[in-house]
Amino acid sequence: MPRTKNISIAFKALALALGALFLLTSCKALGKDGLVLMTDDSYKATVFATNKIGFGSPDGILWNQGKLYLADEGGVALEVWNQNDGLKKLMDGQFGAKSPEDLVMDPQGNIFFSDDDAGGVWEVDANGKQRLLAGKEKGLFSTEGIALAPDGSILVGDADAHEVFKVTRDGDVSVFLGREFEITKPESMAFDDKGNLYIADNEKNVLYLLDTNHKLHVVIDRKDQFSPETIFFSKGALYITDSHASKLYRYTPNEELKTIAAFGGQLKNVQGVTVDERGDIYVSIQSDLKHNVGFIVKISKES
């Protein structure tokens, strides 16, 4: 083939590539990089907080009396935010935590959190004192969901052991739900107002309910369409985030599973969920865990 023809084709290819680049750049300018689809019109969505307030990429979140507590997986810290003081670190990676996952608070204001990388149950008490309540040496290798039992002990799920453990305030660990219950990954746990324990298994993609007689029931099992990430019980309803389907659900035994919102683009990786006193829902989103990009989106009723 003559050299001039080769050069001509090369120029055409280059011109096309530049044209395509221009078109794509235009599209980027038009692009809506993140999206929330409200499937329940009675709700509205707002960005509650971004990395600007100082967090990394939070996983578990918990609202308590005007304060938002964050298990900041990306920032490797346990943090608290309030309107007046902004964000404050309660524990950082120097103490040994590697990947804070989920958190729970007792009525005295002591906070307990799990860590799926460092394992164990960690505590920051009401006075800010930090300690590892029970660690890997007690069989807690990759802790996930955490809940406060009615007797004051801590229940924690372990992804490696495929079990749920009971941890007393003295750090004693015993098996609460053994392997015979066939829970693969107890990612999140929450008690309802009747003392039943909901358990989200996001490997088997099942929501379980453990009744007060210690009997385990399958509540939702929709295979590939449902994968519960975090659950939070508030005022008779269970709020569920699904990081695979990128959705926020509301579950009640009467209404079954109802989608409130679906998330897309850089907002699709929904993680933690919590509800405040007014019924506003907060969802943590890990847009980019590696580069510490995260959002807290607030879903509230239209006034």
């Binding site: 599209c27 809506k32 929330v36 683009g265 989106v297």
Partner: peptide
């Protein structure tokens, strides 16, 4: 590209949706 640039499907735009504009969610 679909992971880099996100544009909602036209059928979706008939519903109540919010898009991220900078650091805000704006109703479309």
């Amino acid at each position: 590209l679909s992971h880099t640039i996100f544009l909602p499907r036209p059928a979706i735009e008939s519903q109540k949706i919010y898009h991220l504009s900078g650091q805000e969610l704006v109703e479309m």
